[in-house]
Design a binder for these strands. Structure first.
Lengths: 335, 335
DNA sequence: GTGAAAGCGCTAACAA
DNA sequence: TTGTTAGCGCTTTCAC
């Protein structure tokens, strides 16, 4: 079933069929109807590979660090909603967590498949690497703060979010507030990554409140396991912290588990705050104080920006969402 | 940067380069080294689209209902681990939950992109539709119980798992045990889907224990929202159930939230059991009794089966994993 | 508005 | 073992 079959069935040229498929300029309504009818009758579907050889693939690639974080679906769904109407299909690849090599392979896989646009969620690669990709493929980077003239940026104001969370704990009366951060495996160590911003802002806010001596960071990862491991490290200190600000809800969940194992009550003994306000955080049994950022809007915006770039926009755009604090039962005044 | 560039740089034919790329038979070691060197020097990467026109894409497509269920990553990671060494890239598409049209589009997207193999996780499509796809593309279906001569099946013994969960609740002394099921949007309603099996087995076990009068099923969906809504429905009955068996952990989480809102304690007033034993279930604050199925093994097996099919196997294979019960604090004797 | 024909980058017959 | 060459199914000039 090829474009030639459709053409001969409709008694027209392949050019005509191709134009109808792409809604291109220069087809009479009569021609269009005839071709459409033939397509439906034969159940024809264009092969993406053949299209890719000359034109578009109508595919948007999304690079995710992994699919374990319940915050990512919000972004992906927003993106899908935005581009589906334009006939684009979203495909996802996993970057493999905190190893830059696995991530590079995943990005290359998308480039090799000639996707029309790429959304990278919190990529670890160096800015140079990202710009190399963006030079050939329309790219939106989500969750990094540096400015680029080559790709678009969609991000949360992580400084504001961190100020909200840490400020909330300080306002409750906490002084020994520890932080669980993500250690990036890259040697280039892009300081613009959201987890670096959150960690830096935590230290700044602590210092501004005269709490520099109480700064304690466990650099593990934004995963449940990372939160668990990080909390065990933090609890080894004497005196132990009275509050933990985890850079992501997933890590906060791990922290809750570790605290429970250590026989500590939340929030009576230790307060815990997270970031992302995932649906799990709202569960009554968890009731995690968290910083909310609107993933759906971020995804939709990223989709719109990609479509604009596919259509030819060359200037670069930066879109920032403002986070809010959602206080719940996991935070309270210190014992 | 094309295969021609590499060929001329290495002073050989494009055929030679192509053979080296595919590790095909009939290249001398000297030739191979020379081509490899040229490839590295030029940073050449083959275009998937051009390969797809003639041969393989080295791509495995995974169809997921969505990426919100923490059980799916286990499967996908197992699959990735298995096929990565053979040079295959895993791409994921979302089927769009419970609507068969969105799912069909997602499957078509994979077929259009000429992936070498497809793993479908709990697809809603009719068996006929699946077999049409499988006729052209090597296919493994995960989570459906019917037998097919055209595609391979990987599944959990959902009957055994359900017997474990419901049996556990009965052994604790419960009689009014309700169930949260998934309502499939398809008209063809494939009775072989895992959620249908779990619901049917629940009814069978209840009947076998003389509890047919206490059968109560809320057919919503295997999501947090579905569990929440289903539980509200179930609590409307008088007398209300003393235990809820949710067909998936995600739904159980929604049930926990709804019970909390209704002022009921778990497990003092109502016991809750789930299915999948996701990492969230193990969290101390949740401590959800759940049925464990080994997602990593299922994923790895699916990967192996796909590679075998790509290599030419035509007979069909069926792989069943045996679930186990993980009792936790969310289940206890009735009040 | 419509169609003929070239060519995208690969792979696989086939020839040497 | 190596190279020549004919396509795969589309899109896109460029005539008409």
């Amino acid at each position: 079933m090829t474009i030639t079959d459709v053409a001969s069935h409709a008694q027209v040229s392949t050019t005509a069929v191709s134009k109808v498929l792409r809604n291109a300029y220069g087809v009479s309504p009569a021609m269009r109807d005839r071709v459409r009818a033939a397509i439906d009758e034969l159940g024809y579907r264009p092969q993406a590979a053949a299209r890719a050889m000359r034109g578009r693939t109508f595919t948007i690639g999304v690079l995710l660090p992994h699919i374990r974080n319940p915050f990512f679906p919000d972004i992906v769904d927003g993106m899908t909603e935005q581009v589906a109407d334009a006939g684009y299909q979203v495909i996802m690849v996993q970057g493999g967590g905190a190893t830059p090599t696995a991530e590079r392979r995943a990005i290359e896989a998308l480039v090799d498949r000639q996707v029309d646009g790429i959304l990278m969620i919190a990529p670890l690669a160096s800015r140079t690497q990202l710009e190399e990709v963006a030079a050939t493929t329309p790219t939106v980077v989500l969750g990094r703060h540096e400015r680029s003239a080559v790709y678009d940026s969609v991000l949360d104001d992580d400084e504001a979010g961190t100020e909200l969370a840490v400020g909330h704990l300080i306002a409750l009366g906490h002084r020994r507030i520890a932080h669980i951060a993500q250690k990036d495996g890259s040697r280039s160590r892009p300081a613009a990554l959201l987890h670096a911003i959150r960690a830096r802002t935590y230290e700044r806010v602590m210092t501004e409140h005269g709490l520099a001596d109480h700064i304690a960071v466990a650099a593990t990862s934004y995963t449940e396991e990372g939160g668990h491991r990080g909390t065990r490290q933090l609890l080894a200190a004497t005196p132990r912290p009275t509050a933990i600000f985890a850079g992501a809800d997933m890590a906060a969940f791990g922290a809750l588990a570790a605290l429970h194992e250590a026989g500590l009550r939340v929030p009576a003994d230790v307060s815990v705050a997270g970031y992302d306000n995932t649906s799990m955080a709202a569960l009554a049994h968890i009731s995690l104080t968290s910083v909310d950022q609107d993933g759906a809007i971020m995804g939709r915006t990223a989709g719109r920006l990609l479509l604009e770039r596919v259509e030819g926009r060359a200037s670069s755009v930066r879109f920032v969402v403002t986070p809010t604090l959602v206080p719940r039962a996991s935070t309270a005044p210190p014992p």
